[in-house]
Computed example of a mutant assay.
Amino acid sequence: MNRPSFGEGVAVALLGALSTSVIHYALIPLAPPQERLVWLCLLLGLGYGLYLLARSPTPAGRIGLLLAWVLAALFSATLFPSLWPLLLVQLGFIWLTRVWCFHRTPVAALLDASLLVFGTIAGFWALAHSASLLLAVWTWLLTQALFVLIPQPGGKTRREADGKEGFAAAERAAERALQRLAARG
Rank of each mutant, 00 (worst) to 15 (best):
Gly49Leu: 04
Ala54Gly: 10
Thr78Trp: 13
Ala72Glu: 03
Ala169His: 13
Leu181Ser: 10
Pro32Glu: 14
Leu27Pro: 04
Gly163Tyr: 09
Gln152Glu: 06
Ile28Val: 13
Gly64Trp: 01
Leu83Cys: 08
Gly47Val: 02
Arg62Pro: 03
Leu37Tyr: 11
Leu110Gly: 07
Trp140Leu: 14
Leu37Ala: 13
Phe6Cys: 03
Ala161Lys: 07
Ser21Asp: 15
Asp112Thr: 05
Cys101Gly: 10
Tyr51Trp: 05
Leu134Cys: 06
Leu37Gln: 15
Ala177Glu: 12
Pro59His: 05
Leu40Cys: 02
Ser19Cys: 13
Trp125Ser: 06
Pro33Gln: 03
Arg3Asn: 13
Pro4Lys: 04
Gln90Pro: 05
Glu160Met: 08
Tyr48Asn: 14
Ala128Trp: 09
Ile28Arg: 10
Ile94Leu: 14
Leu65Asp: 04
Ala73Asp: 04
Leu65Gly: 08
Gln34Ser: 13
Glu160Ile: 12
Leu91Pro: 02
Leu133Trp: 14
His103Arg: 12
Val117Trp: 11
Gly47Thr: 02
Pro4Arg: 05
Arg172Gln: 10
Val107His: 11
Trp39Glu: 09
Leu83Met: 10
Leu181Pro: 00
Gly64His: 03
Leu83Trp: 06
Arg172Phe: 03
Trp39Cys: 11
Leu74His: 15
Val89Pro: 01
Leu149Tyr: 06
Leu52Val: 13
Pro81Gly: 07
Gly185His: 15
Pro153Ile: 05
Pro29Thr: 01
Gln144His: 13
Pro59Arg: 14
Pro32Tyr: 06
Phe118Gln: 08
Ser114Arg: 14
Ile63Gln: 12
Pro4Cys: 02
Pro57His: 01
Leu53Met: 15
Val99Thr: 14
Ala136Cys: 08
Asp162Tyr: 09
Thr58Arg: 14
